[in-house]
Design a protein around this nucleic acid. Structure first.
Length: 427
RNA sequence: GUGGGCGUAGUGUAGAGGUUAACACGCUAGGUUGUGGCCCUGGAGGCGAGGGUUCAAUUCCCUCCGCUCACCCCA
């Protein structure tokens, strides 16, 4: 019987780690530049947090959660997204007593029971940012800028920003009812799939992939025409702030997309999405929006907030597609090739070299040729050759693989070898 | 949940109803004294599982399992 990894999960092998390191490092750097601080929340939560926070009617809650009852009878769910947990932590730890807004970011695995396909798996990882406690559109612009800088610092090009305002819950009622009316009038022009959708979630008809529907959606009532007062002002200010960004980031631009809606219940006002211009099915790299209602929904004081989530696997797919160079990890500074009875001396030398902070690996005890090949495959900078001769004379041969094979006699002493290796340098 | 495609060494591929299933990369052992890469030679390792058709199935058929792509939905 062979064991296999569960469906929709992945082993991230050593050869792939440079991509992950690049993404983690960039995310960490950019978030820090914007004053966001890292938060880690548990991998699982009580199920009702997501039922309430994400929304009972959403697909995520309806059919995608990894839920189970633990031994004490509590209902537990592996987190399907990050925002609800961060907000729970904000309330639970009294972060509303810190200066507002509280800026936080996370990098963590998410779990959803779905059929895997390109860009979609059951365990995926997200980098997310949340700015909690400030209603000002300046924060909306900040989060959008952060997302832009993250993507461009990763080295990804040709990404577009789609933007929309969903308005506020009160005003949205009129909008949805007009939208419903509009699509119902054209119901006979809609494919069956979208007629069903119309009954379930009229907003979602807008972002249908069916070409017939798309044409209708273009002419449908627009959410931004239904916002007024403070909400409209918020939107207008946001747009002017985004226009300002263009002068700093030459490639930055945004497209107002009236068809952009959200699957989770907690969003209001600003929603946005970054996606490659040539994106296929599951192309969204980063998506977010304002979720002013959420903290109230899960039991906190009404607190405005905005944030985004970004799929790391999708980002890496795009990095590979665009052939972004992510660098390769260096090999060890030293591989020790031991011959004859020098095994014990080699092991001692390895320990001393590591104590001197020289990255050192012992070659497997095989023939010299095999050990040399091994050192080469490890991408070692240097080989220290240690046989009975060297142990007796107290002088080791140090060969610099990276410097074309130049060989030097060095006293058989960790500090001397360390000094030599450093002076030779690598590549 | 629905629909399409595909399952041959670790990876990528070739193959044919009939002897020992091929090639490349990778792994491993060597190429006369204790020196890597390039080159050369050898070795290990495989037809997803079960059933059916047939004298004979890895090849044809069915079922299952797995992978993959798309829809739904989403990062």
């Amino acid at each position: 019987m062979n064991f296999k990894r569960p469906r929709g999960t992945a082993d991230i092998l050593p050869e792939d780690q440079p991509y992950w390191a690049h993404v983690y490092a960039t995310a960490n750097k950019v978030a820090t530049q914007f004053g966001y601080r890292r938060i880690d929340t548990p991998t699982f939560e009580y199920t009702n947090l997501f039922q309430r926070g994400v929304g009972d009617e959403t697909d995520i809650v309806q059919k995608e959660m990894y839920s189970f009852e633990d031994h004490g009878g509590d209902n537990i769910t592996l987190r399907p997204e990050g925002t609800a947990s961060v907000c729970r932590a904000y309330i639970e730890n009294g972060l509303d007593n810190e200066p507002q807004p509280v800026r936080m970011f996370y990098m963590a695995p998410m779990f959803r029971y779905e059929r895997p396909q390109a860009g979609r798996v059951r365990q995926h990882h997200q980098f997310g940012c949340e700015a909690i406690g400030d209603p000002n559109p300046q924060v909306d612009a900040e989060v959008i800028e952060l997302g832009w800088k993250y993507i461009s610092d990763l080295g990804i090009k040709n990404v577009t920003l789609r933007l929309n305002s969903l308005g506020d819950p009160e005003g949205r009622f009129d909008y949805i009812s007009d939208l419903d009316k509009y699509f119902t009038e054209h119901a006979n022009e809609l494919p069956k799939l979208d007629r069903d959708r119309l009954k379930r979630a009229p907003l979602r008809v807008l972002d249908s992939k069916a070409i017939e529907t798309r044409a209708l959606a273009e002419a449908a009532p627009k959410s931004v025409d239904y916002i007024g007062g403070e909400t409209k002002e918020h939107w207008d200010i946001l747009l002017s702030l985004l226009d300002n960004l263009k002068s700093v980031y030459q490639d930055f631009d945004y497209n107002i997309d009236h068809r952009l809606v959200r699957g989770l219940d907690y969003y209001n006002r600003t929603v946005f999405e970054y996606e490659p211009v040539d994106a296929g099915g599951q192309g969204t790299l980063l998506a977010g929006g304002r979720y002013d209602p959420l903290i109230g929904i899960i039991g906190g004081q009404e607190t405005p907030a905005i944030g985004f989530g970004s799929g790391i696997e999708r980002m890496i797919l795009e990095i590979k597609k665009q052939e972004v160079l992510v660098g390769t990890p260096a090999g060890p500074d030293v591989v020790i090739v031991a011959l004859g009875g020098a095994g014990a001396a080699a092991a001692n030398l390895a320990t001393s070299l590591r104590a001197a902070n020289v990255a050192t690996v012992l070659a497997p005890s095989r023939s010299m040729k095999a050990q040399m090949r091994y050192a080469n495959k490890q991408n070692a900078s240097n080989v220290v050759i240690l046989g009975d001769r060297e142990v007796e004379s107290g002088v080791a041969s140090v060969k610099s693989l990276s410097q074309g094979g130049e060989q030097t006699e060095v006293a058989l002493d960790a500090n001397a070898i360390a000094a030599h290796v450093r002076s030779v340098g690598d590549r």
